[in-house]
Nucleic acid binder design. Structure first.
Length: 584
DNA sequence: ACCTTAAGCGCG
DNA sequence: AAAGCGCGCTTAAGGT
């Protein structure tokens, strides 16, 4: 993620579209001056981009958003090293407390668009829809050359005049790299063994039944439940009706949720919990999921970078972020390929230690499991207690075991705890907090503010006061967690950004037949296929699996240095090389 | 017949 | 074993 500082070479290249769909490219030098505008037919863009990428000083491509531009390039076999995603940049900068004058960005409403839904680009229908919808947030981002150029200037100006240009530059570079990764992930697809998936389903549920019938094993469990309830008509699939059936059988539950049902001693409970598990598997990730999301051996979920307020990715379709671990074995490398799976141990507490400069907390996790480190340092008695205490500190628990253990952490790691406690205080007062690189939390809603002011008026009832206090604490827990979750997301983006560049620089594996390769730009070379907050999976030719694993580790180190410099915090990875992803 | 909301549970 | 944060997805229920 280093910037080239060549003076003559253009630093950025702006891409826009004119009314006819043709592309214009404009070079921008480091001082902001523009080169001549180059007109290109849409079909000529991949060659144009590839030629610029091949040289030693590829520009950072500035475009409306990656999903509108990048899929076509990838389909033509062209990757880019860096981009500036204006939609994502706008969303960050218009909100960031580091930006001194947000006025110009806040006024540019046309950039407050939702993510481009289809990676293939906006369809004609969406464009018509926009014309019919003169007010309200835009559903697509502007692509016109003038709009793109003006927004880029606004963003550069906002960054330059901010309280910390370096951090915001890093944040936007990382966010934009994430946007590239998301498009690349979808293009590559997750190598998915539908036969193995089917085998797992059949093992749990019974063979796939025709139509809407229940699978046999699931039906058998349902029969067990009904027998234990003494009610052959009991409905198990509708919570309200199930609740009534349970009550008729003497189980006086307040809801049908798992943890509540587990409290009751009744022969129907155990099979019912089993039934709910099977039902969930069938409905969320059953055969119809395979039909919808897996084609030609690839599962292609839709990722939404920056889709969560904290900066985490969201997903929209395919449920990539909620894949049950039980189905992980269906994620299987192609013949001759391997999976390199890596996850960071205790990312969030490590990020917290680094942000707070808490040397004691950093030392507790250095080179080892952080929870065990806490136990060994005598702050808590067991690893389990350490985990509960740490999660409680980051989420703001006040009750139960967690609430009891957090004060010990406050004693052992005062710097780290001060940071999250302070973030919570700010939120309780309706304030805004920011991540390490400058992503800021949203202000509380107007309803929240009204609740607070009503409670402070003379005529306020104790009911008003209670409600206001609860809402204040709730918002405090949100801001407390925001700084940690958001900074962890930044670390993960930096990891991805570094990794995709390192992988793309690896040599092609000449022994792999191009015809058997998975996607246009991914032939014969290790590439990312899965990302889940603190975890990546790389699909690599077997001969390059070790090299890819080294790249994964080196990228994690680089991410730590990039964000936190010399802070004595490490981010140890659990790296596995295997043919199929495993449950643990 | 359509849209929104809530419950429940999957993930970190 | 569950409460403290952030999500998406499916189904059923409730509203129009």
């Amino acid at each position: 993620m280093t910037e080239t500082t060549a003076t003559a070479a253009p630093r950025w290249c702006l891409l826009g579209r004119d009314g006819t769909g043709a592309v214009t490219a404009v070079d921008v030098r480091a001082d902001g001056t523009r080169g001549e505008s180059v007109g290109l037919a849409s079909e000529a863009l991949p060659d144009f981009v590839e030629e610029r990428e091949r040289g030693g000083s590829a520009p950072r491509w500035v475009w409306s958003d990656a999903p509108s531009w990048y899929p076509q390039l990838l389909a033509a076999g062209v990757r880019v090293k860096r981009c500036h995603d204006l939609r994502l940049g706008h969303a960050i900068l218009r909100q960031s407390e580091l930006v001194r004058d947000r006025g110009p960005l806040l006024a540019a409403h046309e950039w407050d668009a939702a993510p481009t839904a289809e990676p293939e680009g906006p369809s004609a229908d969406t464009a018509l829809f926009d014309l019919d919808e003169p007010s309200g947030p835009a559903s697509t981002v502007p692509h016109g050359t003038a709009s793109v150029s003006a927004e880029f200037d606004r963003q550069l100006e906002a960054i330059a005049a901010s309280t910390d240009p370096g951090r915001l530059r890093l944040l936007l570079a990382a966010e934009s790299a994430g946007a590239l990764v998301a498009v690349e992930l979808r293009a590559a697809g997750v190598p998915w063994d539908a036969a193995e998936h089917d085998r797992l389903l059949t093992e749990a549920l019974g063979p796939r039944p025709p139509g809407d019938f229940k699978p046999a094993k699931m039906q058998a469990v349902a029969d067990e439940v009904r027998a234990a309830l003494g009610d052959r008509e009991a409905s198990l699939d509708s919570p309200p009706r199930l609740l009534r059936a349970l009550r008729r059988a003497g189980i006086d539950a307040g809801s049908t949720s798992r943890w509540e049902l587990a409290e009751f001693e009744h022969p129907a409970i155990e099979p019912l919990l089993r039934y709910k598990k099977l039902s969930r598997l069938l409905n969320a990730n059953g055969w119809s999921w395979i039909d919808e999301w897996v084609h030609e051996g690839r599962y292609r979920p839709v990722y939404v970078p920056g889709g969560v307020v904290t900066g985490r990715w969201a997903s929209s379709g395919g449920g990539a972020l909620q894949l049950p671990r039980a189905l992980r074995p269906a994620l299987r490398a192609d013949p001759g390929w391997m999976l390199v799976s890596a996850d960071v141990a205790q990312l969030e507490p490590r990020v917290l230690a680094a942000m707070a400069g808490d040397r004691a907390m950093a030392a507790a996790g250095y080179g080892k499991d952080l929870y065990s480190g806490l136990m060994e340092s005598g702050i808590v008695a067991t690893r389990q207690e350490a985990k509960i205490a740490v999660l409680g500190a980051m989420y703001g628990s006040t009750t139960g075991d967690s609430g009891r253990l957090v004060p010990r952490l406050r004693q052992g790691f005062p710097a780290a705890m001060r940071l999250v406690d302070r973030a919570a205080e700010v939120g309780e007062q309706g304030g805004i907090v920011s991540t390490w690189l400058g992503r800021s939390s949203p202000a509380p809603s107007s309803e929240w503010a009204e609740l607070q002011s009503r409670a402070s008026l003379p005529g306020a009832t104790s009911r008003d006061e209670g409600a206001a206090r609860r809402a204040a604490r709730e918002f405090g827990r949100f801001t407390r967690n925001f700084v940690v979750q958001g900074t962890a997301a930044e670390w993960a983006l930096a990891w991805l950004a570094e990794l995709r560049l390192r992988l793309a620089a690896l040599p092609l594996d000449e022994r792999i037949d191009p015809a058997s390769a998975s996607g246009p730009a991914f032939e014969r070379r290790p590439h990312l296929v899965f990302f889940l907050h603190d975890e990546v999976i790389v699909h690599a030719p077997a001969s390059q699996a070790e090299t890819a694993a080294d790249a994964v580790r080196a990228s994690a180190e680089a991410a730590g240095r990039l964000l936190f410099g010399g802070a004595p915090v490490d981010f140890p990875l659990d790296v596995r090389i295997s043919e199929r992803a495993t449950k643990e």
